[in-house]
């Protein structure tokens, strides 16, 4: 088991490096850098000025070298101008002598956000924490509901119960969040219907989560994700219910309830488990719409801001986090899969 984990983590690191490199290349393409130069310097810079600005700020070297610097395995760039003043990646103000030679993600230097005027690392972790809260409640609501729905629909295929539950799950998944969110706000938070049970904005939930201010965003995401997992669970459940060992159980005289709970459930959960774990990274990026709609300033909202304002360092920071979250959840899902399914237990 330990070797299995070590190997998996090794593969994960390789994947992380490959993925971040791709994101680095895409965000550091030449036209993008020109935009950064004009944003930082002067909108009306000439082409020559842009080139010299890029040179002064360490953007004129090869992509691989810059990626190495960003990662922190290659010494940061320095630039000595005509006046003899040294600037560089790792040099903050004037203390060029004390600065480290390397400063990248590995050293904990994630760069500086040009939009928020803060350290990228601080922004990312603060926003991630807010989104984690949202995700936690979504999971708490979505997973049990989806499993119950899927199992109930799948245990007797083709019955009226199956068809109505399947319709519900298809309908919720087919409704995009920006539609269901608006409907929910209109029904439960506005004076249009008059049921003013909840608040239409979740801004206050960033400090203090209450039933009133957090229900609508959570329900909006949960509804959308639920149908998908429920459909997977149903498919898996119907398949299990037709297997021979379920027939064995039935002909042993096991009651229907016990067949579902003791014999079918565990086998039926193996397939949806992977899907549920895949939902975590999906939630992380998929919350963009809901966070914007309910003005909840979490990770997704930050991502939108960073992309909209060409904030390269912040975008990179966000993508690192996203990559790590995806890989870690996949590791957890593989380990959990082994746990659920004794056939592939590692000896």
């Amino acid at each position: 088991m330990a070797i299995f984990l070590l190997r998996r983590i090794g593969v994960m690191l390789l994947t992380a490096i490959a993925l971040t490199f791709i994101v680095f290349v895409l965000t550091n393409l030449q036209p993008n850098l020109e935009k950064v130069a004009k944003f930082q310097g002067n909108v009306r810079m000439t082409d020559e000025e842009v080139t010299s600005w890029l040179g002064k700020n360490g953007y004129d070297r090869s992509m691989v070298a810059r990626y190495g610097e960003w990662l922190g395995v290659v010494p940061g760039w320095t630039y000595t101008d005509d006046a003899g003043k040294v600037t560089g990646r790792c040099i903050d103000d004037d203390n060029a002598d004390q600065a480290q030679t390397r400063c990248g993600v590995l050293q904990g230097e994630w760069g500086h956000s040009i939009v928020f005027k803060e350290d990228v690392r601080d922004i990312v972790f603060k926003r991630l924490g807010l989104t984690a809260k949202l995700m936690f409640w979504v999971m708490i609501l979505m997973v049990p509901m989806a499993l119950v729905l899927g199992v109930l629909a799948g245990m007797r295929e083709g019955t009226r119960l199956d068809r109505s539950l399947s319709t519900i799950s298809i309908a919720t998944t087919a409704t995009p969040e920006y539609v269901s969110g608006v409907i929910l706000i209109a029904v439960f938070a506005s004076s249009a219907v008059g049921l003013k049970w909840f608040k239409g904005t979740a801004t206050s939930a960033m400090d203090d989560i209450t039933f009133a201010n957090f229900t609508l965003p959570v329900v909006t995401i949960a509804l959308y994700g639920m149908g998908y997992i429920a459909r997977m669970t149903r498919a898996s459940m119907t398949e299990v219910m037709t297997t021979q060992y379920i027939r064995t159980a039935r002909l042993k005289g096991v009651s229907f309830t016990n067949i579902v709970l003791k014999h079918a459930l565990r086998n039926a959960l193996i397939a949806p488990f992977t899907v549920i774990m895949l939902q975590i990274p999906w939630l992380l990026n998929g919350v963009v719409i809901v966070e914007t709609l309910f003005n909840y300033k979490g990770f997704g909202w930050t991502l939108v801001q960073a992309a909209g304002n060409n904030d390269v360092e912040l975008l990179l920071g966000c993508s690192v986090v996203a990559v790590i979250v995806v890989l870690v959840t996949q590791l957890i899902s593989d380990v959990g899969y082994v746990f659920l399914n004794p056939r592939i237990r590692i000896s």
């Binding site: 021979q244 060992y245 064995t248 039935r250 005289g253 009651s255």
Partner: peptide, 22 residues
């Protein structure tokens, strides 16, 4: 249900498929 398993029992063709793997 009372009779199945206690009075009439069945043995199947494919033993692997008729035992619950989990």
């Amino acid at each position: 249900r009372d009779i199945r398993g206690s009075e009439i029992a069945m043995i199947y063709q494919e033993p692997m498929a008729s035992l619950n793997p989990a």
